[in-house]
Simulated scan of single mutants.
Amino acid sequence: MYNNIVIRREIPADFKSVEHLTMRAFWNIHGPGCSEHLLVRKIRESQDYLQNISRVAELNGKVVGAIYYTKAKVVEGNAEHSVITFGPLAVEPTLQNSGIGRALLEETINLAKEAGYSGIVITGEPEYYPKRGFVTCDKFGITDAEGKNFDALMCFPLNMELFNSVHGKFIESPVFKDCENIEEIQKLEAEFPKYRKVKIKDGFLMILEKRFGVIESVNEDVFSVKFWELSIPAKLSKDFNNDSVRPKVGDDVLFIWKQDGKSEITSVCKNMLRE
């Protein structure tokens, strides 16, 4: 973890760079391209934006992460319980797994407690957030807007006395649906560098597990994988399908990025948008 991360409020001078890093952080994760950078822009304009607890992370004078909080509610019949949610939580992809996201979470959770909010409800990565103290919403009788529960629907009580009375259906701010307009997304994309869009057979790429890269060189059993601006050495995973074609220069691959230098290629994949 970096020791010189500065967590602070976002200022207007950060807006464009934060949208760019958010675009990079979510690019091709849930499907071709992404819309999270548009969501960031719309959240800033929303009446539900909680600027008092939203923060950016700065490293060596550059913004490398951001977290945005908005008002939300849990509805049970005629009763409405105020809660908060966050998203996106974005970290520059070449700096992920280095403690930036954790620093943003810890700082803003403390700010939310001090501000007197009852609890946080999110839809997030179930392999990550439980490590930060989040639990599944079924433990508190909270469902999504359709009345369903799943592992990604999680919560973090900030005031247990208040949050114990929160039950019902979780309703996000309407701003989350306002960012699905294709024309708006394309217009915003034009403001930033052009990146390749990818759709793979396995579905979306997992944020924590697998990343999408391109083989740029091969030296015996060591492959150099291009991931954004990085060149990451990797070997074939023990789970790699030996019946498939051995990766060659130019191939798209899924790989597990390990900071200890033991990154592993799990499969060769095809960009279905090329077909």
Rank of each mutant, 00 (worst) to 15 (best):
E19W: 03
N271K: 06
G61P: 10
V74W: 13
A112R: 11
V166I: 15
N159C: 07
E172D: 00
T22D: 07
K139T: 04
Y195T: 02
D138M: 11
D151H: 10
R246A: 14
A66D: 11
E107A: 00
E127Y: 11
V214K: 14
V18S: 03
G116H: 07
S165W: 06
K177H: 15
G119E: 14
A72H: 11
L188C: 07
V56P: 05
T22R: 11
G116W: 06
R8C: 12
E45P: 01
E191I: 05
T143Y: 14
L104K: 03
E180M: 15
C34M: 07
V253D: 00
R24F: 08
K210W: 08
I67E: 08
V18P: 03
N181A: 05
H30W: 11
M23E: 01
V75P: 01
D260T: 13
I5M: 10
G213R: 12
A72S: 14
F134A: 07
D48Q: 07
K187W: 10
V18Q: 01
P193H: 06
I185Q: 06
F86D: 01
L153G: 01
L89T: 09
K73N: 09
C155D: 07
D138N: 14
I43N: 00
I232P: 02
V222Q: 04
T143S: 14
K113L: 06
I7F: 06
V64C: 13
N181K: 12
V40P: 00
E114C: 08
K73L: 07
G124Y: 09
F163V: 10
F150K: 14
D251R: 08
V245W: 00
V249I: 15
E220M: 08
Q259F: 06
W257T: 03
P247F: 07
I29W: 07
I265M: 02
D48S: 12
F192H: 11
I171Q: 13
R132H: 13
V249T: 15
M1V: 13
N159I: 02
